[in-house]
Nucleic acid binder design. Structure first.
Lengths: 73, 73
DNA sequence: GTCATAATCCCAATATATTGTGATTTTGCT
DNA sequence: AGCAAAATCACAATATATTGGGATTATGAC
């Protein structure tokens, strides 16, 4: 996943949970500006910041081997 | 996955590929110090740095919903 | 044990993320 | 259209990652 896709995943999840950016920022103990930037795919957060936000939303990060081209078809 | 687990995944993959830290750093266009810190779980890389290193190793990041307790047993 | 390579550490300089504040724009509802 | 809440933007101050250089330690082969 790219930066943009991760941002979208966060925004989608937040919406699904029905919380606004300020609340998410508070719960994750980060500034709302940081949440805004990440969701818009304009941010390049530090890993700890990203993990905290994901965790707050009940999401996690996984490392996987990339799919080969033919595996995506 | 935690910061430490991600670092370990990177180190394991690098070893499996048989490349040293300097080569990985060069291929990913980051400083060797950065690779060292991340692998040791002491780093808190920016997302772009992490993505570049993972990509160089043929790895990728995924966002998933966290497993419920009973799902881990 | 010796040697060569790899990995780690230290430090100063630089780049970039994060934060807080306030203003502005967008969205959704009636 | 009008209103309230949510989202976005702008900017300066601060915190932290990244880098480069050189030195030190650990690892593995012979």
């Amino acid at each position: 996943m790219t930066l943009q896709e991760i941002g979208k995943a966060i925004k989608d999840r937040r919406k699904k949970l029905g919380v606004n950016q300020q609340t998410l920022a508070d719960l994750a103990s980060v500034a709302i500006n940081t949440v805004v930037a990440i969701e818009r795919g304009e941010g390049n957060p530090q890993l700890s910041t990203l993990l905290t936000i994901l965790d707050t939303l009940g999401l996690q990060l996984d490392v996987n081997t990339k799919l080969l081209e033919y595996e995506t078809m």
